[in-house]
């Protein structure tokens, strides 16, 4: 047991770097992401923010090679993901999709165990080690008590935590999350984001996360990319990106950025009736 543990720890030290190079993405004929170039440093927690339809989720899908670039490239440690076989890619990058559909008659534990898929050959079945990895992941996401429940009986927040347990079971080197907090109440939002942050800090995991909530993005992310109509509007630390000018230009809401009373990070406070068209 200790041998496999040491191996796992060594694995943790191998962090990867993600890059998008002039990435353009499209569904049929509508281009949703245009010539996007950015990098995610190893072990960094990068937030993608922007209004609805700005292309955040599409970028996540492109990084897991579910949709193919119209032009440009996505690189993992300098290697084009189009050249990486799917099982290998799934060992490098794990995804928590937005509102994942799960087959309702499977148990929670079975769903989490599916995270081992990229580690198993066609003829292999899950062994004790795979079960233990799944069980530990469920421990970290506080879902062990759900293990034998049918997925169809679970709430949105429970499913969200379950899918995060599945991505931990997958043991990827980078985790991409698409709106992981959209189904959760404020307590669970903080719980999940604390967990993700700890993956980043303690396990050296590279994290890319899309968030609607600018305040959560400011609190948790090391760096933010602000997207507008599929193009990069601003990037940098939360303090550099979330300022009155950017928020007004991208969201059309004016004068609503303040400093957080405790840690001074930018905080967006909304006020009824205070909205104008995004045109400047």
């Amino acid at each position: 047991m200790s041998v496999t543990n040491r191996k796992d720890n060594e694995r943790d030290l191998l962090v990867i770097k993600l890059e998008a190079e002039k990435l353009s993405l499209a569904y049929n004929h509508s281009v949703v992401v245009k010539e996007l170039t950015f990098q995610v440093a190893p072990g960094e927690m990068l937030g993608l923010i922007g209004p609805n339809g700005s292309g955040k989720s599409t970028v996540i899908k492109a990084f897991s090679h579910v949709i193919l670039p119209r032009s440009g490239k996505i690189l993992i440690d300098g290697k084009d993901i189009a050249r990486i076989p799917r099982p290998e890619l799934a060992r490098l990058i794990g995804v928590v999709p937005q509102m994942p559909l799960l087959p309702s008659t499977f148990t929670a534990f079975e769903i989490v165990l599916m995270g081992r898929t990229p580690h198993l050959g066609l003829f292999q079945t899950e062994g004790t080690r795979d079960m233990e990895i799944s069980w530990q992941a469920m421990g970290r996401t506080n879902t062990q008590s759900l293990a034998e429940r049918k997925v169809g009986e679970l709430s949105g927040g429970e499913i969200q935590r379950l899918v995060i347990a599945r991505v931990l079971t997958q043991q990827p080197k980078a985790i991409l999350l698409d709106e992981p907090t959209s189904n959760l109440d404020i307590n669970h939002q903080v719980e999940i984001l604390d967990l993700i942050k700890s993956l980043c800090r303690e396990d050296n995991q590279t994290v890319v996360i899309t968030l609607h909530d600018l305040n959560l993005a400011a609190q948790y992310c090391d760096r933010l990319l602000l997207l507008k109509n599929g193009q990069l509007h601003a990037q940098g630390t939360p303090a550099e990106v979330i300022n009155a000018k950017n928020i007004e230009e991208v969201y059309g809401a004016e004068g609503c950025v303040y400093a957080h009373p405790v840690n001074g990070l930018p905080t967006v406070l909304l006020q009824a009736g205070n909205r104008r068209n995004g045109k400047k």
Binding site: K61, S64, H65, V66, R86, P87, E88, L89, A90, R91, I93, G94, V95, P97, P100, L101, L102, P103, F106, E110, I111, M114, G115, T117, P118, L120, L122, F123, T125, Q170
Partner: peptide, 23 residues
């Protein structure tokens, strides 16, 4: 029968199955 485990994973939607390494 050999493909019964991948077929389980495909009970998730196709996107998730791909993200879990299934061709």
């Amino acid at each position: 029968l050999l493909y019964s485990r991948p077929l389980n994973v495909m009970q998730l939607d196709e996107e998730q199955a791909q993200q879990l390494g299934i061709n």
